[in-house]
Structure formats: structure tokens, C-alpha cells
């Protein structure tokens, strides 16, 4: 984060210094900056320091360890797997949410009676606490008392007893289902707003020219909502990258470490194994990756006007 002083030159466009405005504007922003810096920046610096030390459950070693923790991290296959799981989930869940969300948005973009009620109901899953969402689906996927096995059983015509959350071949689909259920409404409502903003006369003139529905979608609608799409994808990608609550409620990273993500891995290292300095190194690595990606993306797309 930059210090305000550096770019003060553009600040006095409105009313200038003589009325004490230059002090006023810093006065307004100071409390917020102070809180954010003390809760985010200073602890982050501390984290950086700790990541170069040797603090763990067995040793309170505060001497400088150089990049030892980072070397350990580079060779830690569990950490790489958790990163792989995170990115993998992101790459699978995001397109599914996008396609489902788009399909729903297309279904509801034209006027229909009761549309507002449908939309109001459909956005609700998104605002449920992720931990509650996880708990809910843990219940849904319960191998004995959950309705999922029951419903599959109806179609299969026999008793189904899939142990969803403990079977390594079924656990990822279960997590994916939960995540898609929780976040598709986000895509849906943003894309719905995007579609509503598309110039209808363009679509109509294409229809008059005899363009097919698919052609209209790909040549007119999609380019028109591209900025909206970019924002939705960025926000969801960042959310998916830090996924914790849903996984924690469903599997805690299990069975074994099959569903561990970078967030749950860091949590386990920091708060269950108290491998403090190593966890700090992991966290710093995550911050570095994310900050670079985020700032690049924010500068590119429409959020940051």
C-alpha cells in the first residue's frame, strides 16, 4: 500500500489548501488507514519476520533461519498438493458456476410473471454463512440419513450407501456440489444484471437479419457483457482460492489430506501442529501470489475506474 504523500499532487482539484482542506482530507482518512495498517500491515510484517525464524511447537527459536522455511516449503509435497487441489477446484467449479449462472440468467432475463419472486428466492443460498452451507450439505450427503443417497436410490432402484465424505473418489464431487450450490446464485444475479443492460435494439436488429440464437448470443450478448463477466470471474476466482469454511465443515481436508486446500493446510500447520514459522512462510507465499494476481487484474478490469 502506498503512502498518501506520494500522489498528493492530484488531490487539490476540488477546493484547495487555503481552507484547511488538505488537512481535512487526511483527517478523514487517517482513522481508517490506522485501523487497516495496524490489523493488516503490521501483523503481516511480523509474519514476514516469523517466516524467517524457527518457531514451532518444539522450539521457540527466534534466531534468523534465512530461507530455511521457504526451502522446506518448496520441498513439501503436501503443501504443493493442497495448492494443486485449490487451483483444481477453482478451474472446475468456476466454469460450472459460470455456465449454470448464465443459463439461469438467460431463463429469467425476459419478463415473466413472478420473476422477482423467483430471483429473490434463488439468490438466498449465496448469503447463507459458508460454514452453515457446509454443515447443510454434510447432512445432505450423510450416507445413512441424508436425502442424496435416498434420491439416487429412487433412480437406481436399489439401496445406495455411498459414503460421500469419506470416500476419496466421491468426496470432491460432494465439495463441488456444495460450492456450486452456494455460489451459482452469485454468478446468476450478476449475469442477470449484465444481460439486462444489453442494448435490446442490437439483438432485435440481428433477429431481423435472421441471425440464429446461438450467433446472437456469441456475437452480440457475450461481447456486451464482457466487463461484467470479467468482474464476476475475478471475484469468484479470488473467493475460490481462499476456500476454507465449506471444506472445513464437510471434510476438514479429509479423508487423509485428499481435500486439503491451501487455506486448510495453512490452518492445520498454524493452529493444530503449531509449526508457526513454516505456516508463516506458506502464508507469505500465498499473499505474494495473490497480491500480484489481484493488482494486475484490478488494474485491467472495470472495478477500478
Amino acid at each position: 500500500m502506498s503512502v498518501p504523500r506520494a500522489t498528493a499532487a492530484v488531490s487539490e482539484q476540488w477546493v484547495g489548501g487555503p481552507f484547511g482542506d488538505s488537512r481535512f482530507k487526511y483527517f478523514l482518512i487517517a482513522p481508517a488507514l490506522f485501523i487497516m495498517l495496524s490489523i493488516a500491515l503490521f501483523p503481516l510484517i511480523n509474519l514476514l519476520v516469523v517466516s524467517f525464524q524457527g518457531i514451532s511447537i518444539i522450539a521457540e527459536n527466534k534466531s534468523f533461519h534465512g530461507i530455511l522455511n521457504y526451502q522446506r516449503l518448496a520441498g513439501d509435497s503436501r503443501m504443493w498438493k493442497s495448492l494443486l487441489h485449490t487451483v483444481g477446484l477453482l478451474l472446475v467449479a468456476l466454469p460450472i458456476e459460470l455456465i449454470f449462472g448464465m443459463a439461469m440468467a438467460l431463463l429469467f432475463v425476459d419478463k415473466m410473471r413472478g420473476r422477482q419472486i423467483f430471483v429473490a428466492l434463488l439468490v438466498l443460498p449465496m448469503v447463507i454463512a459458508p460454514i452453515v452451507a457446509g454443515a447443510t450439505w454434510r447432512l445432505m450427503f450423510d450416507n445413512q440419513f441424508g436425502p442424496i443417497n435416498q434420491i439416487i436410490g429412487w433412480f437406481a432402484g436399489r439401496d445406495v450407501t455411498i459414503v460421500w465424505l469419506a470416500d476419496s473418489s466421491f468426496v470432491w464431487p460432494a465439495i463441488l456440489a456444495t460450492e456450486v450450490w452456494h455460489s451459482t446464485p452469485f454468478m446468476f444475479i450478476i449475469l442477470l444484471a449484465g444481460l439486462a443492460g444489453v442494448d435490446r435494439s442490437q439483438i432485435e436488429s440481428a433477429q431481423i437479419d435472421g441471425a440464429s440464437a446461438a450467433r446472437i448470443f456469441f456475437k452480440i450478448i457475450l461481447p456486451a457483457i464482457r466487463p461484467v463477466l470479467a468482474v464476476a470471474i475475478l471475484i469468484r476466482a479470488l473467493d475460490l482460492f481462499r476456500i476454507f469454511d465449506i471444506i472445513w465443515a464437510l471434510t476438514r481436508g479429509g479423508p487423509g489430506t485428499v481435500t486439503e486446500t491451501i487455506s486448510t493446510f495453512t490452518f492445520v500447520k498454524a493452529f493444530e501442529q503449531f509449526d508457526t514459522s513454516f505456516a508463516a512462510a506458506v502464508a507469505i507465499t500465498v499473499v505474494l501470489i495473490l497480491t500480484a494476481v489481484t493488482i494486475y487484474a484490478l488494474r485491467r478490469i472495470e472495478i477500478a475506474r
Binding site: E12, W14, V15, G16, G17, P18, F19
Partner: peptide, 8 residues
């Protein structure tokens, strides 16, 4: 500027 809304 005359109103004082603009710094000169």
C-alpha cells in the same frame, strides 16, 4: 474561482 470553489 470567484465563488471560492476552485483553487487558483
Amino acid at each position: 474561482a470567484i465563488a471560492g470553489l476552485e483553487n487558483i
